[in-house]
Amino acid sequence: MTSAPAERRLLAILLRLVTALALTAMFAIVKLADAHGVTLFESLFYRQALALPLVLGVVGWGPGFRSVRTQRPGAHVWRTVLGMTGMALNFLTFTLLPIAEATVILFTVPIFATILSAVVLKEPVGPHRWSAVILGFAGVLIVVQPGGSTLPPEGIAVGLVAATVVSAINITLRQIGRTESATTTVFWFTILSALPFGALMPVLGKAHDGWTFGLLFALGLMGGLAQLTSTASLRLAPVSVVLPIDYSSLVWSALIGWLVFSTVPSPHLWLGAPLIIASGLYIVYREQKLHRERTAGAVATD
């Protein structure tokens, strides 16, 4: 397999930078909206509903709506249930914790994905990745400082559960991706979540002032932008190239936390975060390396 041209990799990296910034902005908006009386349900609805025109536009102007036909509706329904659960837990994490600390805790997704792959899918996980998992959890302990942390324990608990659910989503997407394109998966996730939430809005929605509705509009815009740029980056370059860029969100979250919320990350965060990031990067590196070896072995035996 030939590697992606350098210019495509550069574009993929730039798109992933946009993804990291858009996601950080989205989570900051969720935190601001919560302070203005927006419920978790409303944040979820506006995140999906306002992203819907973007997704429809991309599908309509791109591969066309025939391309999103699926023979696996049950898989998309399950992905939507998992996806909305993970999104709700992510949003709740950012309302309970300072934005930088919430970001770092969600960096544990590759760690939990490795554990779930071994326990649920029975995939072989060698000593290299188990060592990375232990390193990552050491970083988590440094950040959260059990027994002496000023972070609310419920926020830490919700964040770790959120990371576990998101790791399950990633495994589900990997399985769905064997037969479905990324555009098809994004399309059905958006449709299947926006429509039922929209049906409940007359009952659960509330009136807000113009400033708050502006926040909700920005929330949907940032979420849709992140979803599209993330998908596009993975079409242009391998995961091993674009995933390290995701960790730039720590810089954005620390900056936004300081400028918008007047919070400064604790020294423990800067000590533990590198361990969590190193753990995640090494897990991805090992997975890519093992995938290449299996692919080369399959080709050799053909």
Rank of each mutant, 00 (worst) to 15 (best):
S3W: 06
E7W: 12
R8A: 14
L11N: 08
V18Y: 07
V18K: 03
L21K: 03
L23G: 10
F27I: 13
V30R: 00
K31A: 11
L32A: 14
D34W: 13
A35W: 04
A35N: 08
G37F: 06
L40M: 14
Y46I: 04
A49F: 11
L50S: 02
L54V: 03
R66K: 14
V68P: 12
R69S: 14
G74V: 12
G74W: 11
V81L: 15
L82I: 13
M87P: 04
A88I: 08
N90I: 13
N90D: 12
I99S: 06
I99C: 10
A102T: 10
A102Y: 10
L106E: 00
L106H: 13
V109D: 08
S117D: 00
E123N: 11
P124W: 10
G126P: 07
G126T: 06
P127R: 12
S131W: 10
L135W: 07
G136S: 12
F137C: 10
G139F: 01
L141Y: 10
T150V: 14
E154T: 15
L160F: 12
V161I: 15
A163P: 11
T164M: 15
T164K: 08
V166A: 14
T172N: 14
R174Y: 07
T183Y: 13
F187T: 07
A199K: 07
L200W: 11
P202N: 00
H208P: 02
L215A: 10
F217C: 08
G224Q: 02
T229F: 08
S230H: 05
T231C: 08
L234N: 02
R235A: 13
A237P: 01
I245L: 04
S253R: 01
V260G: 01
F261C: 04
S262Y: 04
P265L: 06
L269T: 06
W270K: 02
G272F: 09
P274T: 08
I276V: 15
S279M: 12
Q288T: 00
K289C: 05
R292P: 01
E293L: 14
A300F: 04
A300R: 09
T301V: 13
